[in-house]
Computed example of a mutant assay.
Amino acid sequence: MEFPEEYRYTEEHEWVLVEDQLVTVGISDFAQDALGDVVFVELPEVGTLLEAGKPFGVVESVKAVSDVYAPVSGEVIEVNEELPDAPETINTSPYEDGWMIKIKISDAAELDDLMDADAYQAFIEEEA
């Protein structure tokens, strides 16, 4: 399983790539593996205001339907338009092509609540 060092992670298994006041969000390799084959993705519209810890979308797999949670508060400025037509991209490329949304952060201090790769791996091991 892959956990890129430059990413941050949530306890709900989202990953976050921080670039200044912009974050890209998706679900981790661990999450996509646990879900199995992803068959449907529901994402918010550009301009949607998100609150950290609240659901922003849905991922449906052959095993389960799961909410996806906003890791930070802010405005959705871009949505991966490819995912609704190719949801399996989350399985094949969770950290690159399988990204879900980009958020303009409204409170950068919320980034301090996210785990680094080592802490996330330890979290997963504790959960198992």
Rank of each mutant, 00 (worst) to 15 (best):
M1S: 13
E2F: 09
E2R: 14
E2G: 09
P4Y: 11
P4A: 09
E5S: 15
E5P: 10
E6D: 14
E6P: 02
Y7E: 03
R8P: 08
E12M: 14
E12A: 15
H13D: 12
E14Q: 11
W15T: 00
V16N: 04
E19I: 09
L22R: 15
V23E: 01
T24M: 11
V25K: 05
G26K: 02
G26A: 06
G26Y: 00
G26C: 05
I27C: 00
S28R: 02
S28D: 07
A31H: 05
D33W: 13
D33L: 13
D33K: 15
L35D: 00
G36V: 01
G36F: 01
D37I: 10
V38R: 01
P44A: 07
E45M: 11
V46P: 00
V46K: 13
V46L: 02
L50D: 07
L50T: 10
P55Q: 10
G57E: 02
V58S: 10
V59F: 00
V59T: 06
S61K: 04
S61L: 05
K63F: 10
A64T: 15
S66H: 05
S66L: 11
V68Q: 02
Y69T: 05
A70W: 01
V72D: 03
S73W: 03
S73V: 03
E75L: 12
E75C: 08
V76G: 05
V79G: 05
V79S: 08
N80L: 08
E81A: 14
E82W: 07
E82R: 14
E82P: 00
P84D: 03
E88P: 01
N91Q: 08
P94D: 00
P94M: 01
Y95S: 04
W99N: 04
W99G: 05
I103K: 01
I105E: 02
S106W: 05
A108Y: 07
A109W: 02
A109C: 00
A109T: 14
L111R: 07
D112V: 08
D112E: 15
D112Q: 14
L114C: 03
D116T: 14
D116K: 12
A117I: 11
D118R: 11
Q121V: 13
F123K: 01
I124G: 01
E125W: 01
E125T: 12
